[in-house]
Amino acid sequence: MIIASAPTTMRAAVLYGPGDLRVVDRPVPRPGPEDVLVRVEMCGACGTDLKIVDGHFPQTPPFGEFTPGHEWTGVVVETGSTVDEFQPGDRVCIEAHRGCGRCANCLVGRYTACLNYGNPAKGHRASGMTANGGFAEYVVHHVSALYHLPAELSAEDAVLITTAGTGLYGLDVAGGYIVGQDVAIFGPGPVGLMTAQVCRAMGAARVILVGTRPSRLELGAKLGVRHTINSSEVDPVRAVLELTGEQGVDLAIEASGGLGTPQQCAEVTKRGGKILFVAFYRDSVQLDLSAVVRKDITMYTSRGEGRNNVQRAVALAASGQLRGKELVTHRFPLDQIAEAFRVMREREGDPVKVVVVP
């Protein structure tokens, strides 16, 4: 079904080599039977995109063919022949990952760990990672990884919903039930800030946000986090222990990617507690694993937004318990995407979430 004829060509950012991202004319993709063609309203950029653009991310399509961008939102333009869940004109947000739907992991909702990851012949797609993504005017996406966007949510909110799904999935993997528990979150970037809001919504007793940039900690406080710690000014381990009566937190969430932060997580987690890792690291980390074992701490990792947690994020955002728009600090038109990435890389103007608008 078509609401209005899409053009035959579009503008899209194509990666031609490490650091060589060019905005060029490309054919508008056509949806298959289970696909939806979406006109992109906005696409967020994140640290993973920096790795992709630098050529340091595995299983991306060949240079000269690939469009990154995995945090996008838009309006349905055309639906495939079997799609009746969406209609042209619907506003949508996404899960970046669409598993193959046939492997053991996908069947239990762990499609971000799909055993056929990167194999399009078996149905796997990760928008902007292993398949063309949202730094373009139009993008095709599988119907199973799309969600209706409620009218009260803006495009800025929508580009952070996938990010919130990452935090929700991590909490899901780590057991999910945090009512009345103390949680420390290291790294007040977009993942950390959205996860902090999720923890408040899920009834955590204390949510403690740890970081080095005052502006991000202030933003966390505006979003409802009562306890913030600037680890460039005080010893974060000592500060967390003082807040928790020397016992430590029930759950430490590592969202910073700092090489020394996993050790800090181990030191602030109480005996029998948990550590959740959702960050990627530029190099090997150092961690006193014997101390983790002595304290009987359980460690979890999660990648992306599995187990339908984006749908949960949509519900939380629609109820006002998740605020994404306030994280969007910089906007660039698609033709200035190189400048957007420069601002991110150099942290010019203290960006939190940079978005690109086709």
Score class of each variant (00 low, 15 high):
E95Y: 00
C43P: 02
Y169C: 06
H148W: 07
K122Q: 14
A126C: 14
R91D: 05
G133K: 02
T60I: 06
G170K: 03
C93E: 09
C43E: 11
E85C: 02
H141E: 11
F66P: 07
H70A: 03
L107Q: 13
Y111V: 04
H56A: 08
V159W: 11
H70R: 01
Q181L: 12
I94V: 14
W72E: 13
E65H: 09
A158K: 03
T112W: 08
G176N: 00
E78A: 11
T112Q: 08
Q181H: 10
E156L: 03
E78W: 01
I52P: 14
Q59Y: 13
Y147P: 01
G176E: 02
V75K: 08
P88R: 05
L146N: 06
V77E: 11
K51N: 13
Y111F: 15
V83A: 07
R110W: 07
E71F: 01
D172I: 00
A104F: 09
E152V: 13
C106M: 06
R91Q: 07
W72K: 02
V140G: 02
G80Y: 08
H97P: 06
G170C: 08
V108N: 09
Q59I: 02
R98G: 10
D84A: 12
G170P: 09
H148R: 15
Q181F: 01
G134K: 03
L149W: 11
V179Y: 04
G123L: 12
L146W: 08
D54E: 10
V139G: 06
V179A: 14
